[in-house]
Amino acid sequence: MSQFRIRKPGPADAAALRALMSDPLCYGNTLQLPYPSMQLWQQRLAASDPLHHALLLETAEGQVIAHGSLWRECAPRLAHGASLGMAVQREWQGQGVGSALLQAMLDLADNWLGLHRVELTVFTDNAAALGLYRKYGFVEEACLRAYALRNGRYEDVLKMARLRPMPLHGPV
């Protein structure tokens, strides 16, 4: 996947991320709204939150085609867990982009944040996303009925999670 570059987003990426999330496929299958504002994305990208770890994926030409986030839980008794969310541009789906970004986020979670549990929610009919998450070890834990409004209907989502052993100690 050397044609892709993964990096942390900055304030200069607001326009690209707003464009990515303006597609009904992307906002519809996450919990975002239509007509995302530039100001909203500028604020998100300017805010520095130690519990939030965002990554984006761009082509060799610098076109931003995917975005992902990990939000660590702040309550001390839940702090071994984080929620994951991601979106891939429509034209680039099914070409290994989601895999590359998800791998990078899980490497961060496992090896640099030391998280034990990563969870996410996914609409039950989002087959592409479900397949990707299963491939990387996410397991369905619950079906949350009528959890979110999507294009006029209350839809069910699956709660999925992936557990990892705690990090090892000392020399390999």
């Binding site: 001390p76 008794r77 839940l78 071994h80 867990g81 034990h116 549990r117 969870e119 369905e140 834990e141 619950a142 079906c143 949350l144 009925r145 009528a146 709660k159 999670a161 557990l163």
Partner: peptide, 24 residues
């Protein structure tokens, strides 16, 4: 009951499971 969430919470030194419940 909608499912079981594994090891999501630290309880007295152990990670324990929680049940998810909802009423519509």
């Amino acid at each position: 009951h909608e499912g079981v969430v594994r090891q999501d919470i630290l309880q007295d030194g152990r990670y324990v499971d929680s049940v998810v419940m909802a009423r519509l």
